Simulated scan of single mutants.
Amino acid sequence: MREHEVQQFAYNLGQKYNESSVDITETAMSWIVLTKSQVFKIKKPIKNQWFDFTAVEQRKQSCEAEVELNQQLAPNVYLGVIPIVDSFMPLNGEDHNTVVDYAVLMKRLRNAKQMNRMLDRKEVTKDHILKLVRYVVRFHAHSKVIDLPPINSHFQEVWHKLICFDFGEDIAEVGNVSATLKRADAVFKAFSANHQKYFKDRKDFGKVRELHGNLFCDNIYLYNKPLIVDCIEFSDTLKHVDILNEAALLCMDLDAHGERYLSEYFYKEYKKRMGTVNEECDDYLFVFYKLYHALKKARENNYKAVSNKQKQQYYTYVQELNIYSELIQSYVAWLDKAST
């Protein structure tokens, strides 16, 4: 489907369910059509290094994989895959029209329970975090073990691109952090060289697993029992990671929301339940993973800022870039101190 067809689909849904307003939002890979109680997620017909959604059958398979994977963490949210016919309506039992696309059908969750919004309102408590820790630990403990090293070739390739990236390029409001990254790279290379047995132990002890791959706060809903949505289905590379990598992503996001205390509490309770291979080395690797994820977010916002210099969103992206730049500096300082 194309964008104008998605708009027609949303209009038709509004007519069918007698809703005056059916909203449409979008991500890089999907259009999201929102009714009062349901969500229809339609893949865009695009192709990149991670996926190829140019054919209808490929989009159908991706929808099916998304539902199957996400039902592990949110079984009552992901309701199935529905065909969309050429009248731009969901297929029903008496409809003989041609199927033109597919959508993931989801139950609509309350915006007020989305973790990033609750963080913005300062409503997230230690009790919320403890429930989330238990939920994540249960998922990680039962996830499939993957026979890969914690720092594999894909990770090394991305890391090299990140440390060579000129953060703050052409953006006067942001201090350049590239020099700091050279020190971080040297420190981590020394750590890796001196702890080869530790990295082998993490692999042998099954610490690399098939995980969520996208554990940001906006994919978490803090009901009495937490719900985690939007698990990555299109790339094994992004979700076959060390468990500390995924925990670090969430904690970095908490840090970015200004909640270092909750971040530290999550990590303390997480490692208490998941155990350690070598606590000192685990702590070092955990902070390095936080640095890695902060760098990825900094690069993303740097690109958006440079691409939108004449638009209103520019200062929003610069503000985000500054947040991640400060995190990068603090993580590198911690690693530098811990290595001496």
Rank of each mutant, 00 (worst) to 15 (best):
K161L: 12
I163V: 15
I163M: 03
C164I: 02
F165C: 04
F165S: 05
F165K: 05
F165A: 08
D166H: 14
D166A: 13
F167K: 00
F167N: 04
G168F: 03
G168C: 06
E169C: 03
E169D: 10
I171G: 07
A172Y: 08
A172P: 01
E173S: 08
N176W: 10
V177P: 05
S178R: 15
S178G: 12
A179M: 13
A179V: 14
T180S: 15
T180H: 12
L181H: 11
K182G: 07
R183H: 10
R183E: 15
A184D: 06
K189L: 14
K189Y: 15
F191S: 04
A193R: 13
A193V: 03
N194M: 07
H195V: 08
Q196T: 14
K197L: 15
K197G: 07
K197M: 14
Y198K: 10
Y198P: 09
F199I: 10
K200M: 13
D201I: 06
D201G: 07
K203S: 13
D204N: 13
D204R: 15
D204E: 15
G206S: 07
G206V: 03
K207D: 07
R209P: 05
R209E: 04
E210T: 06
L211A: 09
L211H: 08
L211V: 10
L211Q: 10
H212W: 01
N214W: 00
N214F: 04
F216G: 11
F216W: 14
C217G: 05
C217I: 00
N219I: 00
N219E: 10
N219R: 05
I220L: 01
I220S: 06
Y221M: 12
L222R: 12
Y223W: 09
N224M: 07
K225R: 11
P226K: 08
P226D: 05
L227S: 04
L227G: 01
I228E: 00
I228V: 14
D230Q: 02
D230G: 03
I232E: 01
E233S: 10
F234I: 11
S235E: 04
S235G: 08
T237Y: 02
L238C: 05
L238H: 03
K239N: 03
H240I: 00
H240P: 01
D242L: 02
L244G: 01
L244C: 00
L244R: 00
A247H: 02
C251N: 02
